[in-house]
């Protein structure tokens, strides 16, 4: 199977992906982990705010708003054809 990896902040809307790696040095990471953004979790960008940033993500069973800068440290994996893994 072919995988694509990209930063969470670059993931297009409505495309589900799996968290692959997180930047351990980033202080935001610990907070993200508490909110359920951990390796292996599925995330889907749902909608952008009025001015484009932050973006609301579906993580596990809830909706969390994250700024672009916060999710630049998170690498996610999608299948090549753009469907959910």
């Amino acid at each position: 199977m072919m995988y694509n990896t990209c930063k969470l902040s670059e993931l297009p809307l409505h495309q589900t992906a799996v968290v692959e790696q997180m930047d351990r040095r980033d202080p935001v990471t610990a907070r993200l982990i508490q909110l359920g953004v951990i390796n292996g979790a599925t995330v889907t960008p749902l909608f952008k705010s009025m001015l484009g940033d932050p973006v609301a993500y579906q993580v596990n069973d809830c909706v969390i708003a994250l700024r672009r800068s916060e999710c630049s440290g998170v690498t996610v994996r999608t299948e090549d054809d753009g469907h959910a893994v």
Binding site: R31, P54, C62, V63, I64, A65, L66, R67, S69
Partner: peptide, 12 residues
């Protein structure tokens, strides 16, 4: 200081 994140939950 280093800026913090937004990290706000949007409840149903």
């Amino acid at each position: 200081q280093s800026p913090s994140g937004f990290l706000l939950e949007l409840p149903p």
